[in-house]
Nucleic acid binder design. Structure first.
Lengths: 243, 243
DNA sequence: CAGTGGTCTAGACCACAGG
DNA sequence: CTGTGGTCTAGACCACTGA
């Protein structure tokens, strides 16, 4: 209620939103769990239901929570659908979406190199785990992928060789390490296929590939994963909606 | 006020939004012009100011209008800034954004081919105008671009050879033909440079290029432009935010 | 200063889910 | 039936703009 006036004005709903986001990031409501109702939270913070609603609606727009009429408000949770629609933009000729199957080639610990330190905001010598894998769509190898995650956040990362086929990495980050990816920035280039990926993708060396340089962020906006994918776009394309 | 109940329920604000969008599309408020105030529109439709506000806020989120505290609500207008941030995602190594200079090579009328008919929802034999141009960033040729627009919407399209350098095509569509582009869908692939674009971009034939297949839509969600760009990503990358 | 959109409130009622 | 979020209202007050 004490609404600060003046040049350092900040709306109440915006402050509430920040407080709720902090509590979410702290793990007070694990992914999938229900938050208290609007009325309960409004009472707790001593604001009207409308103000609290505005905070929650903005958080829903940022996909931090799920809201369902008649059910409640839930901490965002990863799912195949979310991975498919929010984080996997390579679609088939007809526009159909499908999550690729993954075959892990390597999973090794090491020290962050310069690119990894830049992308993940790590210090010199920081430990990382690297995964190299090939992803298949309709039985065809399509993506050669090199993933780096900070060792601090993901201790003793296990890369089930071919195991856990149906789940995505992001589901695993969330379930095993409590790290929820909510946003990502991708930088795309066209590159020529090198020896290693050409062989694995069954293409001639020098074939044009779409390189996707992705940094993924958690609720607190810290980078938690670097992923460089080289994709054959012979039978797929990357879909970008500008609005 | 008469809030229809039952299975065919549709919120009032949503109906208002549709009505306002229609009026906008019909040109009742040309780009940049002010709409009536919230209170005036609320009175006109016989709803509360809050309901009307919700409609306008959603329209702002879809970039159909600009709202500014103390000034008013304005029909969306194109600008260099908008072209730069919403519709030009190729940025330099440092992440800096810059609108490219354009040099038109061709501007010819013709009949829509199959791809153009599909993308622009045209009938067989529909007239189109095609523009071919090269775009430069920092004096370097970076993009080879082939643009197709329906002849119906853009009669007697003039392609100022090198003229009107500072303005973008979308500004011109809006100013001269009353066509405002508000959304676009891009499909990206990696391709090998062909003879024509390799020469114009100063690259060897077969160099990997980023191909962007864009369809642009107007307020009424009809496709109004097809644009296929082949970009050198030696010194630039395509930026995609996933959230 | 008047006029705009932005915030906040309190309350009524509706749609939806699930026991 | 209860409890949830969703809609709608009416009104007070605030922040911003520009005359």
């Amino acid at each position: 209620m004490g609404q600060a006036s003046g040049p350092d004005f900040r709306p109440l709903y915006s402050q509430i939103k920040a407080l709720l986001t902090e509590r979410l990031a702290a793990g007070e409501w694990p992914p999938g769990q229900a938050l208290p109702s609007e009325t309960a939270l409004a009472q707790e913070y001593g604001v009207s239901q409308g103000t609290l609603r505005k905070a929650l609606n903005e958080m829903e727009a940022e996909r931090l929570v799920d809201r369902r009429q008649g059910k409640g408000t839930f901490a965002a949770k990863h799912s195949a659908a979310r991975s498919l629609f929010q984080f996997f933009l390579l679609v088939g000729e007809n526009g159909e979406r499908q999550l690729p199957e993954s075959r892990t080639l390597e999973c090794l610990a090491g020290k962050a190199d310069r690119d990894e330190r830049d992308a993940l905001e790590l210090k010199v010598g920081a430990p990382v785990t690297r995964i190299i894998r090939v992803r298949h769509l309709r039985e065809r190898p399509v993506i050669y992928e090199r993933i780096t995650v900070p060792g601090e956040l993901f201790p003793d990362l296990q890369c089930g060789k071919d195991g856990e086929v149906t789940n995505t990495l992001y589901d695993m980050y969330e379930a095993r390490y409590g790290v929820t990816v909510v946003r990502a920035r991708e930088r795309l280039r066209a590159v020529a296929a090198g020896e290693s990926e050409a062989g694995l993708l069954g293409l001639p060396v020098g074939s044009p590939l779409l390189e996707i340089h992705r940094v993924a962020f958690n609720i607190s906006k810290h980078p938690v994963e670097l992923r460089i994918s080289r994709c054959s776009t012979a039978h797929h394309y990357y879909l970008s909606e500008l609005d």
